[in-house]
């Protein structure tokens, strides 16, 4: 029984990493095309990750390693609790609170690992990322709570299944305000422009990743792919109806990522505090308005 769960988990992990890295690679290609460049091949991200894993790395303290492992491990565990077209390693149904708080351990691990490198740019970037996180978690939570209230369950699977019966029943048509709010929040969650203050290569030397060489960076890239997977999968489950098969689900995910990429390619960057305030006004306002319309009116 437990072996079956673990085998399933292993296969899903491979799929998640594969799709995550593929999305990042395709994303680079699309961004290049928007900027009238030829762009790298779509499998570039795999090459990068393998090269980085094969590269010699330096570390300052074992806490760095612990952080890197916690970061990727936490995010993979999160991804294993998000239903992928209804597929889950065990019958957890995709518990929303667990997903939210389990992804936090990934970010905490990352934050801890980069702090242990001793470079002041890293906590500076983490500080920005956390300020941003305080910004986007609130509208995102508002949107999640709308659907939890509607389905009377705190499971992604039930929310996805509650939209069965054609595209007109999908949540992004029935609750467009919540969809826009969640889209903006997810843009910030992926740290795509205009919310990429934490990376800011020219200001703080790529922020948290400043001291992450070789395989740390390789794991970081896988982590980035996994987090893109999780974020798009959450939105797909919430808004884009029940998926019949895994391909359907992945295409929907890609649609979400494509929107984020297009916004990313043409946007400048917010100031740190303004990003948080923007997220607390427009997306949160939309979410609360949707809440008002849904539950009160």
């Amino acid at each position: 029984m437990i072996f079956l769960i673990l085998l399933k988990a292993f296969l899903i992990t491979l799929w998640v990493v594969f799709i995550g890295l593929l999305f990042l690679g395709i994303g680079r290609k699309i961004t290049a095309r928007i900027q009238k460049r030829y762009g790298p091949p779509f499998y570039q991200q795999f090459i990068d990750v393998i090269k980085l894993l094969a590269k010699e790395s330096i570390w300052h303290h074992w806490i760095m390693i612990l952080g890197a492992i916690m970061a990727l491990g936490g995010l993979i565990a999160t991804a294993l609790h998000v239903p992928i077209a209804g597929i889950l390693p065990y019958d957890s149904n995709g518990p929303i609170f667990l997903v939210l708080y389990l992804s936090a351990i990934g970010y905490l691990g990352m934050a801890m690992g980069v702090s242990a490198s001793g470079n002041p740019n890293a906590p500076l970037g983490i500080g920005r990322a956390l300020t941003l996180m305080l910004g986007y978690e609130i509208p995102f939570a508002a949107v999640l709570i709308i659907f939890m209230g509607l389905t009377k369950s705190s499971y992604f699977l039930q929310i996805a299944q509650s939209q069965a019966g054609g595209i007109l029943h999908w949540n992004f048509i029935r609750y467009p305000l919540a969809f826009i709010g969640a889209e903006i929040a997810v843009q910030a969650m992926m740290a795509e422009k205009p919310f990429d203050q934490m990376i800011a290569p020219a200001e703080i030397a790529s922020g948290p990743l400043v001291e992450w060489p070789g395989k740390f960076l390789g794991l970081g890239m896988i982590q980035m792919g996994v987090s893109v997977f999780i974020e798009t999968a959450i939105i797909t489950n919430l808004f884009l109806g029940p998926s019949h098969n895994i391909l359907d689900f992945t295409l929907k995910q890609f649609g979400i990522y494509f929107i984020a990429l297009c916004i990313n390619a043409v946007m400048p960057r917010f100031k740190i505090e303004n990003a948080a305030i923007y997220l607390w006004t427009i997306p949160l306002g939309l979410g609360l308005l949707q809440m008002l319309i849904t539950f009160v009116l």
Partner: peptide
Amino acid sequence: IIFGFAAVLVT
């Protein structure tokens, strides 16, 4: 268990 599995895998 899932979390432990993921952590072991990454380790």
